[in-house]
Every structure is written in C-alpha cells, then in structure tokens.
Nucleic acid binder design. Sequence first.
DNA 1: TATTGTTTTACCCAATTTTGGCAAATTTAT
DNA 2: ATAAATTTGCCAAAATTGGGTAAAACAATA
Lengths: 107, 107
Amino acid sequence: MASFGNYIKTNRENKGWSQTEFGAKVKINTPAVSKIENDRKRFPVAKLELLAQLFQLDYNQVKDLYFADKFAKEAYEYNCSDNIFKVAENQSTYIKAVNAKQGKLKF
Amino acid sequence: MASFGNYIKTNRENKGWSQTEFGAKVKINTPAVSKIENDRKRFPVAKLELLAQLFQLDYNQVKDLYFADKFAKEAYEYNCSDNIFKVAENQSTYIKAVNAKQGKLKF
DNA sequence: TATTGTTTTACCCAATTTTGGCAAATTTAT
DNA sequence: ATAAATTTGCCAAAATTGGGTAAAACAATA
C-alpha cells in the first residue's frame, strides 16, 4: 500500500475528479489538496468519514490506513526499531485491558 | 508493560528520587512531572536521551516504548481496528523501501 | 506557439492544541 | 499535627494545524 496521500490521489483519479473538484466536495482548496496528495500536509482527521463516503469505501478501513500511515511516518522519522509496532500492539492490549476494567480514559 | 508515564514513575522511584529531584535533573517542574507520570501530558521527546542516561537504560528501547505508548493511545482514542499495527508495519516497510531507493524524506 | 485547465510551490494568517510555570489543594508518611 | 510529596487548576506562551491567496510550473491541445 502506498502513502495515504497517494491513496487519496488514486481514488480521486478513479472518480475522474480534478483536485479542484474533489476539494470542493471536502471543502479544501486546491493547493491544500495537492499538498495532501504529496504527503506534505495531513488530511484533516475530522473529514475522514466524508472521504470514505465520497470514495465509497469502508470508513474504518480508511481510518486504519490513515493512522497506519501516520504512525509509520513518525516511526521512520524518529528511527524507531523494527519491532516498534509489536511493542505498540502490546501497549494497545494493555490500554484496552486497563480501560475495560476501570472505564477511565484520560489522555 | 504499563504506560510511559508509569514507566517513568517506576524508574524514578527505583532511583529513590522525588518528583522534584527528578524534575531538577531533566529541567521539568514538579507539577509537570506529576502530569507526565499520570499521562496527562507527554514527556518531551527531545529529552528522551537524557532520560535514558539518568535511568541507565538503552536509549533506543526507551524511545521505542515512548512511541509505542503514543501510538497505542492514539489508536485507542480513535477506535482503530485491532490490526492497525499490522497495517502500520506494512506501511513502515513500504516507506523504508521508498526512501531506501529515492533517499527523499519529506514529511 | 498560444491557450486553457490542472497541479504545485511559496508564503502568510487564524484557530486550536499543547506546554510551562505558579499557587494552592490534596495526599502520604511520620 | 506537621512536613514532604504529589496533584490539580489556572493562565500565558509556544507549537501545531488548518486554511487561504498569488503565482509558477506542467500538461494537453488548438
């Protein structure tokens, strides 16, 4: 899978929309769309659901891809080790367990 | 493994330092240390190396734990699916491949 | 080559979020 | 009850994010 920006670009082109047309639908101006597609800016999280609707994709899948891309880039940027996502998975398990029992989420 | 804040707390207590004493070493005031240990604020990334030194831990391991914690929390917050970190690992592989070939990192 | 539509780049600004620090409240231990 | 340690609330500063305009660069085509 390519980057999230590329993913948007591909889907947009599949729909036959220009960046301007697509931008009108998600209320993002053309230069911003360009930056997003080239991974120079992040697509606003709050608009992920709308994005999924426009592209007729599963929201949760789009969301996963969005965050996977975000995490991978950050991990790369900070030279995290190869098993960073294994560690993250452990953390994830821990967090879920804690919040399942106590029902408190504060971060 | 517990949260990163808890990890700091544990290590600090192992050293027998109060939050104030520890704070002096990393130049963070006491209330901020408290917030960090209780995961109400993030430990500043730029000080991770110093943290590792103080606790006599491996820097890369501390760093991995820091980001794993960060990613896990974000994934939880946004209700990402269970295999988000599998997807992230794929993205990671992709990014490394791209940057190995082109040597361009722009995010 | 001139024209038109599309994409990209370079700056800039406003809104929001995060952080740092102080004072005070609360908790813990003696 | 007192002292030390920790936590909370609040506010200003700093950083991040989202958004916009103008203009350059690129692509296709008349």
